[in-house]
Simulated scan of single mutants.
Amino acid sequence: MSDLLFRPLEAGEFHLFHRYGPLPASGVGARVLPFEELGYRPGWVWVALRGDEVVARAGFWGPQGAGHPISLDWFDPGHGPDRIEVGAALLRVANAALFPPGDGAQAGERPEYHLFLPGDWHERPDALADATDRISAAEQAGWRRSVERLNLRWTPEDGLPPRSARLTFTPADDDEQVLGLLARITEGSLDAWDRRTRAEKGARETAKGTLTGLAGLAGGRARWRLARDASGDLVGIVMPTRNDRSATVGYVGVDPAHRGHGYADDLVTEALHIFVAEGEPQVNDNTDVGNTPMAASFARLGYRVTGRRLILI
């Protein structure tokens, strides 16, 4: 690979990113928005060049104001017989440059790799092959599989379920109360992020991460609701919000003492009523493939699977 040049693209050079060619016909890597509307920054988009030919490309992303990327969410390793090695080398070089020692970032830190996939990618040979190329190159560069998630969408045309008659909802504006509930919810959680973070940092820090992350989204926290049953017991929380593109049920959880009653349906339904009252045209959510109770709840409420996302860390 001595004939390859790996380098970032600066302002005015993004046309080189498109010289690679289109995304695979299988739909692997396809995004809802075009590249130009996804907010990629100069210096965070990298290409592998063989002469004038772009043979691999990678787009790292972070929100405005972030000093370092938080995700790798566009990656094409190429088409040649050495595509896995070329793709892995591009990721290693780019990641080392984006996370150097001595500037507040941990040297060698890897942002999550989000690989966007068709809903049926496991069953289609073309999609499976395209996904396997990207996964293999990323794994060779040091990433490892973490979790696969369902991407889901609900619109008012899918039918608005009736509001809960068994729960009462109030604003979730007391941080200590919210943190205590969120910490309890991590016990026995089927969410991969909750489980991993709880194992690494404990329940309280996991709860803080959830609260801080969601409060920092564009939608703020005015829509967050605590839920109580007829006896006044606090049974769960739903944290509807907005990200940069659409409404989303940022978090939904039921206290372990009150699981098994289908309260997730009530919680998500409350969020949908809030969004409909505000005129939101669609709600986009996701859940881990392994979180079958939550996936079933979304399905009962009319959500449709729009694709899948494999996360490597």
Rank of each mutant, 00 (worst) to 15 (best):
T212W: 08
P101S: 11
L5I: 14
A295R: 08
D103C: 14
D82W: 08
N243P: 05
L9E: 02
S164D: 03
V254F: 05
V32H: 11
E10H: 11
G250K: 02
W61V: 07
D265W: 08
R228G: 01
R166H: 13
R7H: 06
R153C: 14
M1E: 15
P162R: 13
H18N: 10
A172N: 00
P34T: 06
F60C: 04
V283W: 00
P77C: 11
H122D: 12
G27N: 01
L5C: 13
R144P: 04
K208E: 15
G262R: 03
L38C: 09
E10G: 15
L150Y: 12
D76G: 06
V93F: 08
P34K: 07
D229T: 04
A11Y: 05
H79P: 05
G102R: 08
L310A: 14
L33G: 00
D255H: 12
F298R: 07
E53I: 04
G202H: 03
E270Q: 12
T170R: 14
E10A: 15
A295S: 04
G108N: 02
A105W: 01
R228F: 11
L214E: 08
G51S: 02
L272F: 08
Y20M: 07
T168D: 13
R223M: 12
A165Y: 10
G102N: 03
P34H: 10
G213C: 06
A257G: 12
H261R: 13
L150R: 14
M239V: 01
S2Q: 13
S231A: 15
L90C: 05
T241K: 05
A296M: 06
I311T: 15
R57M: 01
F35K: 01
E270W: 05
T210H: 15
G220Q: 00
N291I: 08
G27V: 03
P81M: 10
A215G: 12
A94P: 09
P156H: 02
L150K: 10
P81H: 14
G43W: 04
R259H: 07
R308A: 09
R195A: 15
Y40K: 00
A48E: 05
G279V: 06
F298M: 11
P8E: 09
E10F: 11
A58E: 02
V276Y: 08
P77L: 08
W44F: 01
T132Y: 11
V93M: 00
I70E: 14
V47E: 10
D3H: 15
R184W: 04
S71P: 02
A25T: 12
P101M: 06
D244Q: 13
G250I: 01
I185L: 07
D175S: 09
A296C: 06
E85L: 14
D73S: 02
R57A: 00
D194F: 08
G59W: 01
L211M: 11
H15I: 09
S189G: 10
D285F: 06
V32R: 15
G12E: 07
E187P: 00
L226T: 04
W224C: 00
T168N: 13
A138T: 04
